[in-house]
Design a protein around this nucleic acid. Structure first.
Length: 159
DNA sequence: GCCAACGTTGGC
DNA sequence: GCCAACGTTGGC
C-alpha cells in the first residue's frame, strides 16, 4: 500500500466540492504530465491513500484524505474537443492520459504549506524539493504519519 | 502579476 | 540528439 499527495486547485475542485459529489468520488482528470501520469498508471493501487492538497490558492495546504477506489483508466477529457484538457494527439486506440478515481475519506483541518514547512521532519517531502511542480507525488509512510498527526493537532497561529 | 524552475516542442 | 524558444506550475 502506497501513500500519495495529489494537488487540486480549489477553484476547480475543492475538498468541499468533493464532499458534495455522489459517493464523494471523482475521476482525477486533467493530469498532463508524464511523470504524474506514470505514478497513476503504474503505481497507484486500490486502497492507496492520498492527501488532498489545495494548490494555487490563498492558503495552499493539505485539506483532506482520499482513497484510490479505481485504478488507472483513460482520461475521457483528452478526447473531448470542448474540454480544456483536450489533446489532439491522443488516439482512442492508444490513449495518452489516464486517471484514477478517488473517494473522500475525510476532510482534515487545513494544514497550511507554511506549517508543513515549519516541521523539520517533513523536509524530505517531495513538495519541498527544488523546483518540484508535480501534481502527484509519492509520500513516505513516515511523512504520512507525521502529516496526519499534524492535521489532528491544534492549528498553529505562528506560521 | 512576478518569477524561478522545469517540461515540451520542433527545427536542424 | 541537441538546444533555443516557449509554455506551465505554483508560491509569493
Amino acid at each position: 500500500m502506497n501513500y500519495w499527495l495529489m494537488k487540486s486547485e480549489p477553484g476547480e475542485l475543492s475538498v468541499d466540492d468533493l464532499a458534495e459529489l455522489p459517493g464523494r468520488r471523482v475521476g482525477w482528470f486533467g493530469v498532463r504530465n508524464y511523470q504524474a501520469r506514470n505514478f497513476m498508471r503504474d503505481q497507484m493501487r486500490c486502497g492507496d491513500l492520498a492527501f488532498f492538497y489545495h494548490s494555487s490558492c490563498a492558503v495552499p495546504g493539505v485539506a483532506g484524505v482520499v482513497k484510490i477506489v479505481r485504478e488507472a483508466y483513460p482520461d475521457p477529457t483528452q478526447f473531448d474537443p470542448q474540454s480544456p484538457y483536450f489533446d489532439p494527439k491522443a488516439q482512442g486506440s492508444s490513449p495518452r492520459w489516464f486517471q484514477v478515481d478517488v473517494e473522500l475519506v475525510k476532510k482534515t483541518r487545513l494544514v497550511p504549506l507554511s506549517e508543513l514547512r515549519a516541521q523539520g521532519a517533513l523536509a524530505s517531502m517531495r513538495i519541498f524539493q527544488r523546483g518540484n511542480r508535480l501534481s502527484i507525488t509519492p509520500v513516505q509512510p513516515e511523512e504520512w504519519n507525521n502529516v496526519v498527526r499534524l492535521a489532528e493537532s491544534a492549528p498553529r497561529a505562528d506560521v
